[in-house]
């Protein structure tokens, strides 16, 4: 077992555990787009950045690929980490605004503006589908081709691969496929609908139990119940 400090908490994990797995095990949520428990870590999306070390020697590493070390100090939600994540999400929103997964994550992390040139890609090159196909389905029907800005995911010679069994695993795991709530071609690059939740309740009755309880509006303090109690 390895002993390390996670957000000030003394923890011990088994050798070979990644920082992401350790944080997840101890209930600290780290956002990711390219990691999956059943697939090998890839470190493509960089959203799982955490700060390791202390003082001037601290640095950002991707927690999904960084194995736990003895005596390591890990902080998952420092100012630096959160800023880096928000910037990354802005870039993702500028690349692929039609993805619900990315929009949800942006709202959750409080990203409310996009300062980059807007594009409308359908892929963020996270490589989940490629790994799904190779590792879980033993297919190797799709993969990365070309490099740099021309890099993309396709089947050999851009034809339907003989190795493809139409299992649909690639689409199942894709974080960019699911269209955002208001449809894929909304004008604004950012949805943020979740941030502007209005309380669904009209009135609050002391005696009656709310059918929505527990409700996000009350949790956020905007619901009638929360207002009545305060």
């Amino acid at each position: 077992m390895l002993n390390l400090t996670l957000n000030g908490l003394e923890i011990s994990v088994e050798k070979g555990t990644t920082l992401l797995e350790a944080a997840k095990f101890y209930g600290m949520e780290i956002p990711t787009l390219c990691s999956d428990e059943a697939l090998s870590p890839y470190g493509a999306c960089r959203l799982c950045l955490v700060e390791i070390g202390t003082g001037n020697h601290s640095r950002l590493v991707s927690s999904c690929t960084y194995p736990a070390r003895e005596g390591l100090t890990v902080r998952t939600h420092t100012e630096r980490v959160v800023q880096a994540r928000k910037l990354l999400l802005e870039l993702y929103l500028a690349t692929c605004p039609s993805s619900k997964t990315i929009q949800d994550m942006a709202s959750k992390l409080g990203v409310t503006k996009v300062r980059f040139k807007q594009k409308h890609e359908e892929c963020i090159l996270c490589g989940l589908c490629v790994r799904m196909c190779a590792e879980q389905m033993q297919g190797k029907a799709i993969g990365f081709v070309k490099r740099g800005i021309k890099r993309r995911i396709t089947a050999p010679f851009a034809k339907k691969s003989e190795d493809c069994r139409l299992c649909g695993g690639c689409m199942y795991i894709c974080p960019a496929c699911q269209a955002r709530c208001q449809g894929p071609q909304e004008k604004s690059p950012i949805c943020n609908a979740c941030l502007n939740l209005s309380a669904p309740c009209l009135d609050y009755f002391e005696e009656a139990m709310c059918y929505m309880d527990p409700c996000v509006a009350c949790e956020l303090g905007t619901g009638r119940k929360a207002k009545a109690q305060s």
């Binding site: 190797k140 029907a141 799709i142 993969g143 990365f144 081709v145 070309k146 490099r147 089947a155 050999p156 010679f157 691969s161 003989e162 190795d163």
Partner: peptide, 25 residues
């Protein structure tokens, strides 16, 4: 040649995708 790459993949037991990735890289 595409056909040759396909043959090589089959004969050498290398996934065609890997060969194609390298060829385009």
């Amino acid at each position: 040649p595409e056909e040759l790459l396909r043959e090589i993949a089959k004969e050498r037991n290398i996934p065609l995708m890997d060969i194609y990735s390298v060829a385009t890289f």
